[in-house]
Amino acid sequence: MAATSVEHLHSDGHFVTPQDKYSSMKLGMWLFIATEILLFGGLFAVYAIYRAKFPEMFFNGRDELSLLLGTTNTVILIVSSFSIAMGVTAIQRGKKNLLTFLIIVTLLCGALFGVNKYFEYTAKFHHGIFPSTDIFFALYFMMTSLHMLHVIVGMAILFIIMIFNMKGKYSPSNYTAPEVGALYWHLVDVIWIYLFGLLYLVA
């Protein structure tokens, strides 16, 4: 590595206090969340336009989706958001091992979500439904797969945080990374709740 002592000072020397680091990281994450919302916002716009244009297609398409699996996945993600939020509280109170445990719970939820998605997708393929079937299913596959990608990224972030936590990097005076990671996970959850409503529920 080329990082000399000068560069080390350089990269971390700014953060005079953990509070500064905390507020900077949080501002950064909120900005990033804004970009994510705009990314999905494009798809929401497509959804609004074509739902207005082809209401029947959306109605019929919705009936093809498995409400059971969709609801299950919604519950799973809400539980995972709850567990990661508890994890942040845990590290704020210095309970390092509890954070590790709660991240594992969150990761398991994420994995379970993926398994359910896999079953949903394969069932669609068996019925001969593909992204090219019609615009509703194009939207369904684009939205849910892009969301799944975010679930995977969120799991990777939380996994890294878990490793650092097991090495004892976080404490009641330094819980920036767990909190910012959790913030991202909540975004993933919130986007799913919108997708669930728009794709599975709306008549």
């Binding site: 990314l39 916002g41 497509v46 593909f130 090219s132 019609d134 194009a138 596959f141």
Partner: peptide
């Protein structure tokens, strides 16, 4: 604020070519 929108646009264009979505 603007770049994510071109990101999704180009992603959809790629999906048009690869998967044949019809937006």
């Amino acid at each position: 604020l603007a770049t994510p929108v071109i990101a999704i646009t180009l992603l959809l264009l790629i999906a048009e070519r690869v998967f044949g979505i019809g937006f």
